[in-house]
Simulated assay, not measured.
Amino acid sequence: MEAPESPTSSSAPVLLNIGGRKYATTVETLTQREPDSMLAAMFSGRHTLPRHPTTGAVFVDRDGKHFRHVLNWLRDGSIPALSDSDYQQLLKEAEYYQLLGLDDYINEKLASKKADDSADAELTRKDVIKCIQAQKIRFRGLNLSGLDLSKLDLSEVDFSYACIERTNFSCANLHKAKFKLVEAARSLFEQANLHECEFTGANLQEAVLDRANVQSANLQDACLTGCSCIETDLRSSHLQSANLTGSDLSGANLEGANLKGAKLPGANLQGANLQRAYLREVDLRETDLTGAKLGGANLLGAIR
């Protein structure tokens, strides 16, 4: 069988084999949008291209996975939203085929995504430090998500209603700080001083409070599901109606804490100190109390 002839017009179909993947397009698509590219040069008619003897397909030794995006770019001038890793791989193909427009497009997308990722917080760590130094210490309702505020003196600062998800407060001094109704999921408070803080109604889901000082803090109605409170000092803390489902309180000191109506199903309280704690009407189903100290605890009406 004779090999198919080379296309004689810009609208004639062209068969491509890119690393084993088959594509069909036209000379017009390959040459119009990026006229200075390697693909445009290949199909300009100035070069003789080796073709498969039966199919007539032109073989290019590249990964064919992302070539569909190359063709979409050449056809429409756009590509769908991709993950960062896919953008990086497509960028390599754009560089190989010398598609300068696609190269610029991808770099703009990556820069935009980076800007979006860093634009979550309304302030930077430096901004926060300046506010502290100027004694402007109210951050009510602000978005401070993802900031590193570790080791700062933030005592008595008002964060009420703020969004502080994934914020790092490790080793910070937050004595008497206010966190009423904050969104603080997955934030870090490891070894922080939270003595007498207010967390009423706060969302602390999957937050880390390991070895923090949370003495006499008000966590009433707070969501602490999946929290890590390993060896946390919670003496005399107020946890009425708090949701501690699945939290890790192993080795925590809850002496004299008020947990009336709290939910603790599936929580880990191994070795915890619950002496003289107020546990009336607490849900303790599937809670691990191995080695826990319960001397003087009030368990009237607790569900076990």
Rank of each mutant, 00 (worst) to 15 (best):
N213P: 10
E165P: 01
Y278H: 11
G301D: 09
G56D: 13
A24Y: 07
D158F: 00
V70Q: 11
L90M: 03
D158G: 00
A115D: 11
K126E: 05
T225M: 15
N218T: 14
S9C: 08
F199R: 04
K151P: 00
D153M: 07
E198D: 12
C131W: 15
L300R: 15
L254D: 02
D76Q: 15
S228H: 14
G77H: 09
G226H: 14
A184F: 09
L147E: 02
D288F: 10
K178C: 01
R285G: 04
S150K: 05
D103N: 10
T31P: 07
Y161S: 00
G256S: 04
V128F: 01
Y97I: 08
S187R: 06
Y87S: 09
L194H: 05
S9E: 13
A192G: 07
T245I: 06
A81N: 12
R280L: 09
L152Q: 06
E95W: 12
T287V: 11
S170T: 11
D210I: 06
V58L: 08
T225I: 13
L274Q: 03
E206I: 03
N168E: 06
A81W: 13
V182E: 00
Q240R: 11
L269R: 06
T25C: 07
R186W: 13
M1S: 11
E2A: 14
E196A: 10
G45C: 07
A202F: 02
L239Y: 09
T31W: 05
Q89V: 11
F169L: 06
G266T: 10
L49A: 03
H69L: 12
T31S: 06
R285D: 12
L149P: 00
A267G: 03
A184W: 05
V182Y: 01
G256N: 01
D116H: 09
Q240Y: 08
A41R: 13
C131L: 12
Q215V: 13
L219F: 15
D283I: 04
G301N: 07
Y97Q: 04
A257C: 06
A111I: 07
R211E: 14
N203W: 06
L188R: 12
K178W: 01
N72D: 13
E108K: 08
L279W: 00
T290S: 14
G256C: 03
F179Y: 03
N213Y: 15
D86Y: 01
G45T: 02
A192D: 14
Q205H: 12
D61T: 05
G201W: 03
K176L: 08
Q88G: 04
L174C: 05
E183M: 12
V60A: 02
L259C: 05
K260C: 07
L82M: 11
F199P: 04
S145N: 05
M1N: 08
A94E: 03
M38I: 05
I132V: 06
A177P: 03
K180A: 01
F59E: 12
L144T: 00
Q88A: 14
N298Q: 06
H238K: 14
E5N: 08
N213S: 12
L110F: 03
G271C: 06
A242F: 09
E165K: 06
E2H: 15
V182W: 00
L102E: 10
L188K: 14
F189V: 11
Q220H: 08
L147Q: 01
A184H: 09
L100D: 15
